[in-house]
């Protein structure tokens, strides 16, 4: 069975949202900047509540931000 990986478009969405910084996004969703860095680079799969909060911060659905590959 192949290992599924969670990819995301956080980086692109941040730049689309007026070049939002990682720290600004972290403050909006209530986590540390390290968590945003790890999530953005695909090193950490966020919990469902955090994924929803990140999607809401960009005004998107969770599936539009995160994809299972």
């Amino acid at each position: 069975m192949s290992k599924e990986q969670l990819s995301n478009h956080i980086r692109r969405l941040r730049f689309d949202a007026g070049e939002m910084t990682q720290q600004q996004l972290a403050d909006i969703v209530g986590v540390t900047r390290q968590t945003i860095i790890a999530t953005e680079q695909g090193r950490y799969a966020p919990s469902l509540p955090l994924a929803i909060k990140i999607a809401r911060a960009f005004g998107k659905q969770v599936e539009e931000v995160f994809q299972l590959e």
């Binding site: 972290a26 403050d27 209530g30 986590v31 540390t32 900047r33 390290q34 968590t35 790890a38 950490y44 966020p46 919990s47 955090l50």
Partner: peptide, 12 residues
């Protein structure tokens, strides 16, 4: 002051 001390990445 806004930044949390501990979040889910820290817990993991």
């Amino acid at each position: 002051p806004v930044e949390p001390d501990f979040d889910e990445l820290d817990t993991a």
